[in-house]
Design a protein around this nucleic acid. Structure first.
Lengths: 142, 142
DNA sequence: ATTCTTATTGATAATTTTTGCAATAAGGAA
DNA sequence: TTCCTTATTGCAAAAATTATCAATAAGAAT
């Protein structure tokens, strides 16, 4: 429970403000891990906050690298606190999710940054595919 | 212009139907490359098709591996025909986009599939980061 | 503690995306 | 070709997401 104060300070240092709404959302994410915007709203509506604020705040936190937006099926997003560096494998058929250590990617990422000049967010990638279960009953072979 | 018939046959073989709406959307994507749902609708509205149909069809094509959904800023999607294997680097600040050859990933992907048992869509990844220009005027350093 | 600047929120409207269901039409069978 | 089955579409309403703008409040300065 020591990361909230640290994040607050980080925000203030950049000229942003630490509001009750932002704290409430951060706490919700800290407590529950992955949450969709709707789920976040459920957990903070008691504070009287608007849905619009939830969306804006999540986007704000994402743009500042404080939370990550992981893609779920069909373009829907779930947000989570930016913490340990890891990646996601998501089954596009059933939505099952697997977390991966990030180490394997470091080399590749470095080489891509070199080639492109981009500084990449290498800590939270999402790859799509078919999980073992769905590979069986899949009728998709192009 | 030989891929449309091939896709049609592929759909029929799986028990789906080849409708004018699906063909129109595929042609639009084939002609223009990356398109958002709204842009697709613009290009096919002459046919009398509904927006709902555009969304449903894009999702249908995506779920069947015929088109890819590339993430743009803030969760918005753009669709493109599944064709040449390549990846995207997207600047999260300005939205600039760079395409990459897929070759570099093959090795890593194979190893991930081995570890996880997933069969991954290795042909269209989207990585986010900061392009060279936006790295300069960025005030974000945690 | 008080004032001041302006980032942030709430309220509301606009826009985008999804859903439910009856009507339609693709494609196989007769 | 005609008939049948049912996947697909259109229509309309619901839900989700984003934008606008005046009012509020965080945090620095006094």
């Amino acid at each position: 429970m020591s990361c909230l104060p640290r994040l607050s300070q980080s925000l203030r240092a950049r000229g942003y403000r630490v509001t009750p709404q932002r704290l409430a959302i951060l706490e919700a994410l800290h407590h529950d891990g992955h949450l969709s915007p709707a789920q976040v709203y459920e957990r903070v509506r008691q504070t009287g906050m608007t849905e619009a604020t939830v969306y804006r705040t999540l986007e704000f936190l994402r743009a500042n690298g404080i939370v990550f937006a992981a893609q779920r099926e069909g373009g829907r997003l779930t947000y989570e606190l930016a913490g340990a560096s890891h990646h996601h494998l998501v089954c596009r058929a059933c939505g099952a999710q697997v977390d991966l250590e990030a180490a394997a990617f470091q080399e590749l990422i470095a080489s891509l940054e070199q080639q492109s000049g981009y500084r990449l967010e290498a800590s939270h990638l999402t790859l799509f595919g078919l999980c073992p279960a769905c590979q069986k009953d899949s009728k998709a072979q192009a």
